[in-house]
Amino acid sequence: MMIYFKRIFKIGIINFWRNRWITLATVMVMVLMLFVTGSLVFSSVLLSSSIDRIEKKVDISVYFTTHAAEKDIVALQDELNKFPQVESVEYISREQALENFKLRHTNNALITQSLEELGENPLGASLNVQAQNPEQYESIAKFLGASSYSGVIDKINYFQNKLVIERLSNILVSARAIGWGAALVLAGIVVLVAFNTIRMAIFTSREEIHIMRLVGAENNYIRGPFVIVGVLYGIVSAVITMVFFYPLTLWLGPKAEGFFGGPNLFHYFIGNFFQIFLLLLAVGVALGAISSIIAVRKHLTI
């Protein structure tokens, strides 16, 4: 039994090397496939992080009238915090609002001057509410409008931004759906191309498979070396792809970070090196082995 596996291994490795042009062509296609797989991982990391960030930018600001009591505001904050949909509630006091305002307009002499002339703080306190996801703002805004505090609420800017927020959340949701759909189609195409490349490589060996059958080799003995070669394609391709990704993410990392504001791809790549390598290895080896088994089976008919 041992000798059986040893021979299958040996023949597989010899074939991998002797048919090096076919090996080269197949490995190139597999590298392309794994490259697409890895790129999908990277772009989904970037996309999710920028979606996260955009979603964070969406919020509801509740502005209170200048005579609203601080304890009411804090009570409302507590109540909002109990909502499961609510991610966070930030309280901005009147004084802080004034500080922020001054800070923003520190270069504008006219505004600072008129503020000083006014003598008192014209700004009300506010609460910044963040929901866990954009679809939930609607219900939070409704709750606020209907709550017993509506008397001290000056305005809720969600209703002003409602349209924009709604559009944005729709765009985000469909962008993600389209992204996943496109990624799946692309991945499907690339897998098919890789599968067909292996089928072609094995097709060139069909005469040999027939001969092996005729001289009395068992099917598993014929199939074994092809499966080994398929697995080797997967391993070599995964390694080559990883080697490609190193300089690529190094170069692309800062650029993509600037553009998406997302994590630096290079850091992500290094930080998750083994997970990514294992993923590519698993995809490559599975595809190589399964394609080989399917392709050989077609020729075991004589």
Binding site: N15, R18, N19, E207, E208, H210, I211, M212, R213, L214, V215, G216, A217, E218, N219, L300, T301
Partner: peptide
């Protein structure tokens, strides 16, 4: 069954008219 033909074929040594050698 096709998968079991190997047993039969190992009992028969064949010289093929077209040799049927493994080219590699």
């Amino acid at each position: 069954p096709k998968a079991d033909l190997a047993v039969l074929r190992r009992k028969i040594g064949t010289v093929f008219q077209d040799f049927k050698l493994l080219p590699s």
